[in-house]
Amino acid sequence: EETYEVDGEEQLKKVEKMLRDRNLDVEVEIHNGKFVIRAK
């Protein structure tokens, strides 16, 4: 499992696309105004 923490939606979209391109399962949560992306 990998976890990424990003600020802002633009970064979120980039990271999310990169992970989905690797066929990973992606979950996004918001913690303290930051996006936390978990990939399995």
Score class of each variant (00 low, 15 high):
A39C: 14
V26P: 05
N23E: 10
L24F: 14
V6F: 07
R22I: 04
N32A: 05
L12T: 01
K13E: 09
V6A: 08
D7N: 08
M18C: 15
L12H: 02
D25F: 13
A39R: 02
V15F: 09
R22P: 03
K14P: 01
E16L: 15
K14N: 08
G8V: 05
V28Y: 05
A39F: 10
K13T: 06
N23L: 08
E27G: 03
E10N: 04
D25L: 14
T3Y: 14
V28M: 03
K34Y: 10
V26F: 15
V36C: 15
V36W: 05
K13Q: 11
H31P: 00
R22T: 04
E10K: 04
E27K: 11
V28P: 00
V26D: 01
E16K: 11
G8Y: 08
E10L: 06
K13A: 12
N32P: 01
D21G: 04
H31F: 11
Y4Q: 02
R22C: 15
D25M: 14
F35N: 01
L24W: 11
E2D: 07
K14I: 14
E29C: 08
V28A: 00
L24H: 05
E5V: 15
E27I: 15
E10F: 05
V26A: 05
D25S: 11
A39L: 10
E29F: 14
K34I: 10
A39K: 02
Y4E: 02
E10W: 06
D25T: 14
E5P: 03
D25P: 03
H31L: 13
G33N: 06
K34P: 00
Q11N: 10
L24K: 06
K17G: 05
D7Y: 14
Q11K: 07
E27V: 15
E2I: 13
I37K: 01
Q11H: 06
V15H: 02
R20S: 10
T3W: 15
R20E: 05
Y4L: 04
G33T: 02
E1K: 09
F35V: 07
R38G: 03
E1P: 11
L19S: 00
A39Q: 03
V26Q: 01
T3V: 15
D21Y: 04
Y4T: 01
K40G: 05
R22E: 05
V26R: 00
K17R: 08
A39P: 05
K14Y: 12
V36L: 12
E2K: 07
G33P: 02
G33V: 00
E29L: 12
H31S: 11
G8F: 10
K40E: 03
D25I: 15
R22A: 09
V6G: 03
R20W: 08
K34G: 06
E9K: 08
N23P: 00
M18A: 11
T3L: 13
K40N: 08
K13I: 10
V36Y: 11
G8E: 08
L12V: 06
I37C: 03
Q11T: 09
K14A: 14
E2R: 09
E5T: 13
L24A: 04
I30S: 08
E9M: 13
N23F: 12
V36T: 06
D7G: 05
K17H: 05
N32Q: 07
K34M: 10
E27R: 13
L24M: 14
D21N: 04
K40F: 12
E16V: 15
D21A: 08
E5D: 05
K17D: 09
E1C: 15
I37Q: 01
R20T: 08
K13F: 09
E5N: 07
V6E: 02
K14H: 09
A39E: 03
R22M: 13
E16I: 15
V15W: 07
D7M: 12
D21E: 12
K34D: 01
N32H: 07
R20L: 12
I30E: 11
K17M: 10
E2L: 13
L19Y: 06
E29I: 13
V36M: 05
E29M: 11
E27T: 15
K40L: 10
L19F: 12
V28T: 03
K17V: 08
Y4M: 03
G8T: 15
L24G: 01
M18I: 09
A39M: 07
E27Q: 13
H31I: 15
